[in-house]
Amino acid sequence: MCINRRAPYGTIYALEGLEVVLMGAAFEQDISVVYLDDGVYQLKKGQDTTDSSIKNFSPTYRALASYGVEKLYVETESMEDRGLSEHDLIVPVKMISGAELTELMEQQDVILNY
């Protein structure tokens, strides 16, 4: 499982988290990806970096499905805190509560945080 808790662009965490998931998928690992806290902003629709000379990597989240990564989770509380709903996101995800996430984390072999 890879847990992403940082907004994109401000730090390198988001991109690193995305790359580690793609790398794991290339090695056929069974990966779940969680977006939590500011990490939910990574999936925000409509990102456009043309005026800020940094690469917009948000289209790559849509490649996760073609890489075979299908278990994407977003924590409901993080979304609500930020006034976001599923319609604001660039990919289909499963919304789960913090309590459900606690249980999901317990089932993992390895958890990586970004």
């Binding site: 808790r5 939590l36 806290d37 913090g98 996430l101 606690t102 249980e103 984390m105 317990e106």
Partner: peptide, 12 residues
């Protein structure tokens, strides 16, 4: 940072 808060919120 909110790291400790989130840990306390989600750790079993």
């Amino acid at each position: 940072k909110g790291s400790l808060d989130t840990c306390l919120r989600l750790a079993k």
